[in-house]
Amino acid sequence: MEQTVLFRVFEERDIDFVYRCKNDEKLNSQIVGQWRPFTYADACKWVQGCMVDHQEYKFWAVCTNDDEKRIVGWVSLSNINYKDQSAHFHGIVIADPMYRDGFAWIESYLFILDYVFNKLAFESLTGSCLIEHKHSTLISQALYFTVYEIEKESICRHGKMYDLEKHVLKKNDYITHYNNSEYDIMSIVMRMSKLRRLSNC
């Protein structure tokens, strides 16, 4: 199946898009941290920060699979630790409505898994999300992350405390599931759909 999106380094032309996204209340309702308004200067700084090579974190622009390579979102890794051979799935935003149909989202997750376990050859990838964030809890299950901790009332958003789910995927498990074709897009879609139905019961 042809890729819906590609992944590239950030460019100056992405600033307008980032500025709009960072101020989109609906988009930011699902972030783990506390949202704050973003000025255009903040957006410039943010994008320029993403453009620089960092040892401990990496941001990619998720872009259209054509000559234009227009940004539709971004995906990031943090806590890249070469000594411990681990990294943390920092975040994903797919903001362009034309790309919010599941494919770009899954492809972005698979890109990160491939980067961590094949390119970096790390041993583990962690992730975290608010328990209420169904999208994240379901995709982590569908990709065979296992929950190792629920941090009770650890995140404060708009004066309310939320529980944080922490999950991890180990390299050996990734390889096993990969070799079983369980990271094929349709396979993930079917698992997500089933998990979603079960979670609604």
């Binding site: 149909d101 770009a104 999208h135 079917m190 979603r196």
Partner: peptide, 21 residues
């Protein structure tokens, strides 16, 4: 994206058709 995936799954399970992005 979550609803989108459910629609893709619907196309596959109920109608036997795989649709691409």
């Amino acid at each position: 994206s979550l609803v989108g995936m459910s629609v893709i799954a619907l196309a596959k399970t109920t109608y036997g058709k795989a649709i691409t992005g």
